[in-house]
Nucleic acid binder design. Structure first.
Lengths: 118, 118
DNA sequence: CTTACATATGAGCAATTGTTCATATGAACT
DNA sequence: AGTTCATATGAACAATTGCTCATATGTAAG
């Protein structure tokens, strides 16, 4: 059995706790999805968009206008938000209206706000 | 008054909604803090660490061992987590024991998990 | 079928990020 | 003092990211 990490010699934990920690750490797959989801929230522009959409559905051009970003930048970001299933959309003529996909979005934003506001 | 964004001509919203959207978008300062907080969750290694610490406090070397990362990588990440007030620590001899700063951490992870698991 | 408008998208670039490696700090023990 | 162990930190590098710019797609109206 070879050491692959340059870490300390002793384990400062009870055998039982070690097992529970290992059991508690999600699978690589889940970690990947989870971090990917939070990455999406980790950008000012996207958070602005989400807050805007938490009021009402909006077309791309109005999102751009109210967030003070270019149409292109917003369009790129909406693609990201769509990929994470945080927003959905419907087409109406030339316009595309975006809205929040579900209530998780608001809840996650709310929890984040709680943390920074204390 | 000059146009600074290459967006559409019309506003597809009621005057009232425009006002509410503007009111609802957080200040630059708050957006900065919020996105910065979520950025911290946006990394597999840091999420692993947080899940590990959600079981029990642990010293750096044990975190490294159980997350299968190097001591240095973990130490750097703990610095980030500390800066966001997601973890706290106490020193005991040569070792430093880290633990979750509060329950928001678990709640935020929980909400994220809820979103990806549907 | 043109033209105009709304949105999407690809390439390119600067900025940010996570890891590794080497080294520094600091505590405990001889 | 010197040695060992646990942790922290700085520099460097590859990888990722968010924007801009130019252009493509698609819809509606003339």
């Amino acid at each position: 059995m070879e050491e692959q990490f340059d870490i300390c010699d002793y384990i400062n934990m009870k055998e039982e706790e070690v097992k529970e920690v290992i059991r508690n750490i999600p699978s690589e797959d889940k970690l990947y999805n989870l971090s990917d989801l939070f990455k999406v929230f980790g950008d000012k522009t996207r958070i602005k968009v989400l807050y805007a959409l938490s009021v009402t559905e909006m077309c791309v051009c109005d999102i751009a206008r109210l967030t003070e970003m270019t149409q292109s930048a917003i369009s790129h970001q909406l693609k990201t938000l769509k990929a994470s299933k945080l927003v959905k959309y419907r087409k109406e003529g030339k316009a595309t209206f975006y809205s929040l996909a579900d209530d998780h979005v608001k809840t996650i934003l709310e929890q984040g706000k709680n943390h920074i506001e204390e």
